[in-house]
Structure formats: C-alpha cells, structure tokens
Write a protein that binds this DNA or RNA. Structure first.
Lengths: 173, 173
DNA sequence: TTCTAATTTAATTGA
DNA sequence: TCAATTAAATTAGT
C-alpha cells in the first residue's frame, strides 16, 4: 500500500497532537483507527443501500433526458421528473440545469432591475422561461453571490492598487 | 434581440400590475443599463504591470507569493515563461501549477483516507507542502472528479462485458 | 493525445 | 437568505 510507504518518510518526529494532523491522517501514529475517518464518503461509489434495485430502470431512463433545454424549451414536467427526483434522492443531487442563452439573458435583465424578485415574479419568470420556480430562485441566489463576490474583489484590487501606488511614489523620492 | 420576441409571446392578458412585471422589467424603455461590475479576483495578476520588478515581494507576501514552491525542482525562468506569464495575465488565468512528485504522493495518500478534507486539514497540508490552501482545495476537487469518472467508466465496462457475455452464450445454442 | 490544473456556475447544506 | 462548499462541465497547459 502506498500510504504506508509514504507515511514512512514523513517530516521528522511526531509533530503535534492537533485534532487531525497530516501524520495522523497518513496513519503514522495509529495503525488502525479507521473508525471515524475510514469511510471516505464517496456517494457515487456505492450503489447505495441494497434495496434500490427495484425501479432503477425507470429511473435511469429518466435521468437521460435531463436537460433538453436548448433555446426556447426546457425539460418538461413529465412523470419522469418525479422518477428522477426519486433517483436523485438516492444519488443525492439534482442534475445540473443548463440554462439557454435566452433564458440567461432574460434572467440577467430582470436581475439588473430587481435582484430580489418576490415569489410572484419568480413564478411568472418560471412560466415564461419554462423552468421550475425553484431553478429561478436558486439562480438569483447564485447571481447575488456572484455580484457580491465581484464587489469584494474589485474593492480588494482598489486597495491593493492604492497601496502599491503609495509604495511606488515613496520609492521615487 | 430575442428578449423582445420572448416577452412578446406572453400568456394571455396583462398578468398583474405588481410593482414589476417581467414585461416592464424587460421593457425597452431601458435600452442598456449594463454596468457590469465583475472583477474576477485574480491575485496573481500583478496590479502594476509596468513596473513589476519593484517590490512585488513586499505586497505579495501578504496574499500570494505564487508558486516558487516546488519541493524538488520548479520551472525555469526562461523568456518564454515570462512571455506566457504575460499572456496569462491578459487572459486572466492562473498559471498552471506543477506539483512535485512528492507533493502528489502526499496528497494521494491523504486522499485515500479522506477525500473531503476540511479547512483545517487543507491548511495543514498547505503549510507542509508549501502550497496555497486554494491549490489544495482545487486538487481535491479535481481528484474527486477523476475518481468518479473512473468509476463511471469501469461500471460501463462491466455492463458492456455482461451484455456481450450474454450475447455470446446465446449464440452458442 | 491524455491527463489534469483552473474556471464558471448550478446545486446543497447549515446557520 | 447568505456563506461556504460541492459537483458538473468546460477550457487550456504539459
């Protein structure tokens, strides 16, 4: 096993006993304490609890047609959707929605005017863009986060610029 | 503009006159109000391109000091490198980090035990491997994606094998 | 070409 | 709702 050989040549003596040291992860100190950390949580790795093999067929065909939303139309709210939801409950994640460029354009222009649309506007958007209202809500959430981030970042850059300007002008005298 | 066509084919009569309707938001009354504030936080982007040989050291120690940090050997500083660096500066992409084999070995063995290291472990790793914590996080992200991919592939192969076995045995009778 | 570091953004979770 | 993450899907460097 590679972890043994690697953990063997770690940096020197026992480092410190913080809750988790790299060395403890590398299993240096304890040959087998694999109780807490031992199951690396890889949801896709196992087929999940054994009892799921029932309707996987139906589900799998559902998961195929996930996002057909090219321009005008997105995926439908067919019964396969609920199957997919069921499957995702096992697998754990909603398939990523790919918004069309038209949808994005509309969402962006609404965002410019109102970044906190109420339920009524969201529903309206949902109907017009053929999306779930949920998707709209999440989209606005993420969009607000993005705006906020970019604000922080540009401020950071401004501060950095000012500082480096100061530095420069100081050096010139 | 597509937004016109989309807002045009609305569902029936005027929806309601809440403070903002989609149509009023999409309204042409406001042709372009695009104030894009986005500034993609790229710390390795030097703010003073003209005179970067100044004291980059001083302010870079605050946040970045990008990557001189190989364990074994790093890249050379050939002219093409700096050229590429400049290009990257325009393009806005962080220069690709080249992990040393030692770094990879450690990361891999940590991954074996815990593929979702928390911030504390990531920081610790960063310190020990002389990397940014960001690099660590990205590495684990990509590593998880790789694992998942390989899983998908092997499962696909298994299914394929089973199917072709079935085919074969059917043909033999 | 293959692999993988980096980016963007949809989805999830917890507070 | 936000903040922090994760995952999916890319882009691009070696």
């Amino acid at each position: 096993m590679a972890s043994l050989t690697v953990s063997a040549h770690q940096n020197g003596p026992m480092p410190r006993q913080s809750a988790f040291t790299i060395d403890s992860i590398l299993g240096l100190d304890r040959p087998d304490q694999r109780t807490v950390l031992s199951a690396p949580y890889r949801p896709w790795t196992d087929v999940k609890p054994a009892c799921q093999n029932r309707r996987v067929v139906a589900d799998s065909e559902a998961s195929v047609n996930v996002r057909m939303n090219e321009d005008g139309k997105s995926y439908s709210k067919s019964p396969t959707d609920s199957y997919r939801r069921t499957l995702n409950w096992y697998i754990g994640r909603r398939p990523r929605t790919a918004f069309s460029s038209v949808q994005i354009r509309i969402l962006e222009s609404v965002f410019q005017v109102n970044s906190y649309p109420g339920i009524d506007i969201r529903e309206e958007l949902a109907k017009k863009l053929h999306l779930d209202e949920d998707r709209i809500q999440i989209w606005f959430q993420n969009r607000r986060a993005k705006l906020k981030r970019s604000h922080r970042e540009s401020q950071f850059l401004m501060v950095k610029n000012v500082l480096s300007d100061l530095q420069t002008s100081r050096e010139e005298h």
